[in-house]
């Protein structure tokens, strides 16, 4: 009885520290969730005369993937995106972040191009507007162009199956 209070405090502390261990301090919640995609107009990677604008992405549920040829982690998630494109159910757009056009084109030629179009953000201005701090990052946009989800780091099969695809299907259902 005498030690019940210190013991309770100790147990609570252990539980809190245990939860703290499981949290990833690298994951910063994005303030952009439920906000509209920032307006932009950027040339595409493939053709500097063709512009991709934020309005082009509206009217459909979109997976917007931030990538770069210098980004090592992008390589690990890339086959997943290529597979997803082959299944043809998800509209994938790319944002090529702080890259060289030639390198980006070679990267796509070698590893496959899952993107309907990739905007070419050489100076990273759109990246700043999107709060990008660690490539790859992936956004899910609804039909009205509202950001509904943001994933930081490479997409894993688990995250695709448990988070991204269910959300995309939900947003694509007529009721949404």
């Amino acid at each position: 009885m005498r030690y019940s209070l210190p013991l309770a405090v100790f147990v609570i502390l252990v539980i809190l520290l245990g939860i703290g261990l499981k949290l990833d301090p690298g994951l910063v919640p994005s303030p952009l969730i439920d906000k509209p995609l920032p307006a932009f107009s950027l040339p595409t990677v493939h053709d500097r005369d063709v512009m991709l604008t934020s309005t082009d992405l509206q009217g459909q549920v979109v997976l917007l993937n931030i990538w770069a040829s210098w980004c090592v982690a992008c390589r690990t998630e890339h086959p997943l995106l290529v597979d997803l494109m082959k299944q043809g159910r998800v509209n994938i757009y790319g944002l090529n972040y702080k890259d060289e056009r030639q390198n980006a084109l070679e990267w796509l030629a070698r590893l496959g191009d899952p993107y309907r179009a990739s905007a070419f953000d050489q100076d990273g201005r759109l990246g700043i507007d999107l709060g990008v701090y660690g490539v790859p990052e992936t956004f899910v946009l609804d039909r009205r162009g509202i950001i509904r989800y943001k994933h930081i780091g490479p997409i894993t099969p688990q995250i695709l199956k448990d988070k991204l695809l269910p959300l995309i299907h939900k947003l694509e259902s007529p009721a949404a």
């Binding site: 910063v28 919640p29 303030p31 952009l32 507007d129 999107l130 709060g131 701090y133």
Partner: peptide
Amino acid sequence: LVDRYGDF
């Protein structure tokens, strides 16, 4: 900056 990256 807070609008883009949050209070963090």
